[in-house]
């Protein structure tokens, strides 16, 4: 088990450096330079710009520039925002909480809805029940977030007026948990719609496959009741591909969060990202990109660990 974890971590290191190289290349290809801001000053002299260029290290070779950037990055220094002149790292930390609340609650909600639906569909395949949940799954995975968001806002916030239209708390300045939950319902629902769709399909598929395995027949032949066969023998085996699917969904979840946060004015990393892109705030864009990439990396490692906790064949490898 320990060996497995170490192996996973060792693989993550070169991946991390690969990510930083990509982020650096892409952002240096993008138009504009940090000096553009200085050019807005009508009294600036060419000598002064040259002095700044040397101060920023822009006269150096691109590889030197990258290494310096990476060195700062490894010390937790992501630079300063062009827009607010605040440290990027602090801006990310401030926005992280709301994004985590949103993505985690959406994931938990999807699992709680989709896994039971998928199991029931697999238990009675080609029944009305199966068709209903398959239908739901197709609609779910085919509905774009922005569309689902607009529909839900229209019905629940505008027509029925039972849920807020956006934001994380109201403007009164008081912050309570019930208020947070009320604001969370719609964005979390929107973010989980596609997840629910994919998860229902994955659960149904892996459950159907597991139910035709020999050890299920063995379990039935011992006189175990069908519901116990499902829970004790089938579910845990079926969970293995479901966990994999959840891991694969992390990038989509983050992408979905960007759109969802924008629609609902949710004060998370996603809406900061959109704002920074429209303002060409490169340090923030780069910071968030590296941060998210590392989060995905960690998410994959956690997925692998859960996976190996479920499946002893992987653990002993």
């Amino acid at each position: 088990m320990g060996k497995y974890v170490i192996k996973r971590l060792l693989i993550a290191i070169p991946t991390f450096f690969g990510i930083t190289v990509l982020v650096y290349i892409v952002s240096s290809l993008a138009p504009g330079s940090p000096l553009d801001l200085l050019l807005q000053d009508p009294f600036i002299t060419a000598a002064e710009i040259e002095r700044k260029r040397i101060e920023y290290g822009l006269d150096q070779h691109v590889i030197i520039q990258y290494i310096r950037w990476l060195g700062e990055l490894l010390q937790g220094n992501l630079g300063f925002s062009y827009r607010t002149h605040l440290p990027v790292w602090g801006m990310i930390v401030e926005r992280l909480g709301p994004t985590l609340v949103l993505t985690f609650s959406a994931t938990i909600f999807s699992v709680l809805v989709a896994v039971p639906l998928g199991i029931m569909a697999a238990y009675k395949p080609y029944s009305l029940w199966d068709y209903a949940s398959s239908g739901l799954s197709f609609i779910g995975s085919a509905t774009p977030n922005f569309f689902a968001g607009l529909i839900l806002i229209y019905f629940f916030a505008v027509r029925l007026n039972i849920l807020p239209i956006g934001g994380m708390y109201d403007t009164s300045g008081i912050r309570t948990l019930p208020m947070l939950v009320k604001h969370l319902i719609l964005p979390a629902a929107v973010l989980s719609i596609q997840q629910v769709g994919r998860l229902i399909r994955q659960t149904r598929g892996s459950m159907l496959e597991v139910l035709s395995e020999d050890y299920i027949r063995t379990a039935r032949a011992t006189g175990l009741r069908e519901n116990l066969v499902l829970v004790r023998h089938a579910l845990r085996n079926a969970l293995i591909p479901i966990v994999t699917e959840l891991g694969l969904m992390i990038p989509f979840l983050i992408g979905g969060a960007v759109v969802t946060e924008q629609i609902f004015g949710w004060p998370g990393l996603g809406s900061l990202m959109v704002l920074s892109i429209t303002q060409r705030d490169y340090p923030v864009i780069m910071g968030i990109t590296v941060f998210v990439a590392v989060a995905v990396l960690i998410g994959n490692i956690v997925t692998d660990l859960i996976y190996s906790a479920i499946d002893p064949r992987i653990r002993n490898r």
Binding site: T218, A219, H233, R236, N237
Partner: peptide, 10 residues
């Protein structure tokens, strides 16, 4: 099928 007749995760 003793290969597949036992639950692999138990």
């Amino acid at each position: 099928d003793s290969m597949t007749g036992l639950n692999p995760v138990m």
